[in-house]
Design a protein around this nucleic acid. Structure first.
Lengths: 350, 350
DNA sequence: TAACATTACTATAACGTTTTCGTGTTGATA
DNA sequence: TATCAACACGAAAACGTTATAGTAATGTTA
């Protein structure tokens, strides 16, 4: 196993001390120009590059941030990673990805694995199972160890850390409002069980829009889907069946708001099968602007979440915390940044 | 800034040496049971956990692997990451993700950043720009430093390293063959420029299937799309236009094979707009089994690439190399593992 | 010419581990 | 009672850096 060039080797072969080599490479004024030149030339010859791990140990910072997400096969999270990566890279940070797969224990394991010095801070979106359990001990422990932590999208108020969210309520409200303004009078919502914060909040927005227009919500029209494994292959049948039933019982539904694009696309499919014409008979709006929305038929109007901005913002907040931590400056109060959504109008609305 | 508990602290407070603490925590027989108990109890009390970075330095291995991909907003790569992550985690490795964004310089920067000791090995799919330039210096340099490297999907033969690919040619051949067997007689292909290896190979498979059935290839029907920025928002117009033109000139095309799902979905959309009925007038098969395929209308028949298996296999090969590296065993010859594809039949074919 | 700067280095400690090689007590043996 | 294991622990080196604090060899000043 070949070993990489180290300062020690350079020093030995140049017959100077390690300190001299180190300083020469950093253009220290303590070192004569002559020596600097010699050292640098030789270092280049041997293709010397400092060992990151040693630097991390010395500086007590790794220049890497850990992002833990429930699922990577998901356009939104993917966008967030991209945003994190871009910003982090621009600041000289690397990004290490952990997947919780929506599982509590995976989340814990991943966090513990990384909290052992591998990273300078976390960016996390909580696993579904963790939200159900409401067991946040691993979060508070991390915080206790003063490892900075930024949550995004799936956040919970009990954890005292910076957060980046989308204004789910507002976004949903705007979507439903748009539906109403475009003539929809009986609007159903396809949402998740309440323990998923985004589902709960978007449902709230839906209700507020109805209220604003003095439309009485009909319980039947609020479909709270248990989204366990929904993104895993074909557990969508359940969803299809439920939408079909809804439309059978309430054939005069003329608007559907779905809390994600998948629900929306599935709903459109069912409706088309049942003879609805979109957007004339039925208008649909989803949430999250992913691949599906863009290429569904008809193309799906949707509330864009700006995942990449969220990622970038989360990274920014985190790196700020990391910096403040080493500088021992007075800590800033906790931030919650709300990224505003916007409605992208496409073929599924009039 | 609170400092984490270290061996030194434990030693000081327990009034024993660092060595003793270290050994006690590892149940060394050199240490009396009594001391072991005391040390462990105290360590637990102070929530001691060894510092990964220090361990990495000591052991000269980081237990993390770097994966560099052209784009993360892409279902296939996302699946691969998932496969890598799963396997790597099961072996105690972490995964650090670098995004080249299809750019040569980003790829170089990312690799250099990580090659400085941050990772034990690489898993890479080459950036488009790098394929065009055919400048693989950063790869060979990495290999020279004896950092193990596994390429997947977008591989090039010149780089002597383990590779994991899909049998692109065969997969395409099977798809086109299926099209023919289902009655398609005039089949177009939507592919990429030849510098993208997967595009080239899949085109080859297309031609082979035609040959097998003694169908003469028609140059007009081979659409080599310049896929620069294709996945960036709406550069798809070009593609749409080209497909439309193709169908105008050759209205009797009754089969389309596309080298990715996006091309396939766009083609379906154009064809539907032009009045084709799918699959009756025109049958379509794509490549890569992503979200789009599953939820397009009609659902898209496609060649599944098994991204997750690819990732897992790549991780397996890599970790094998890493282990062999430290053990200084005789090196295995270079592997190229071909993951077999399979055709998923859905609504876009008869 | 003694005192002091300046120059150009080197030695050393430190970051947090592990591991090899001591070493001072015991208790048993010859 | 010397001798020797066995036992239980400690010292020190090493991984690759950086930063602080020396230290010789010059040159400058009063």
């Amino acid at each position: 196993m070949k070993k990489r060039t180290t300062l020690k080797q350079l020093a030995r072969e140049l017959d100077v001390s390690i300190s001299t080599v180190s300083k020469a490479l950093k253009n220290s004024p303590e070192i004569s120009q002559d020596t600097i030149d010699r050292v640098k030339a030789f270092a280049k010859l041997l293709n010397y590059r400092p060992n990151n791990i040693a630097l991390s140990l010395k500086n007590r910072k790794t220049k890497t941030i850990g992002i833990i997400i429930p699922d990577i096969v998901h356009h939104f999270f993917t966008k967030v990673i991209k945003g994190v990566e871009k910003y982090a890279n621009s600041k000289g940070y690397n990004v290490i990805v952990g997947l919780s797969n929506e599982s509590f224990s995976n989340e814990v394991i991943n966090m513990e694995m990384l909290a052992n010095g591998s990273i300078d801070g976390f960016i996390i979106s909580m696993a579904r199972e963790t939200m159900q359990r409401q067991d946040y001990q691993h979060y508070t422990e991390t915080l206790n160890e003063e490892i900075p932590l930024v949550m995004f999208d799936r956040v919970v108020a009990e954890i005292p850390c910076d957060k980046v969210t989308v204004d789910d309520t507002k976004g949903a409200e705007i979507a439903v409002d748009a539906l109403i303004n475009k003539g929809a009078t009986k609007i159903a919502i396809l949402t998740t069980k309440d323990y998923v914060s985004v589902g709960r909040l978007r449902t709230k927005g839906y209700l507020e829009a109805l209220k604003k227009h003095e439309i009485n919500p009909i319980p039947d029209l609020i479909l709270k889907i248990d989204d366990e494994l929904l993104y895993e292959d074909d557990h969508l049948d359940v969803l299809e069946k439920q939408v079909r039933e809804l439309l059978l019982i309430h054939p005069d539904v003329n608007g559907i708001f779905a809390v994600n694009e998948l629900y929306a696309v599935v709903a459109m499919k069912v409706a088309k099968d049942m003879g609805y014409e979109i957007p004339n008979d039925l208008q649909v709006i989803g949430f999250t602007d992913g691949m599906l929305s863009k290429h569904a038929t008809p193309t799906l109007s949707t509330v864009s979440q700006h995942g990449e901005s969220m990622g970038a913002k989360a990274a920014e907040l985190l790196i700020q915390r990391i910096d403040e931590r080493v500088s021992d400056l007075p800590k800033e109060p906790i931030n919650t940044v709300v990224i505003s959504t916007n409605l992208i109008q496409r073929g599924s609305t009039k």
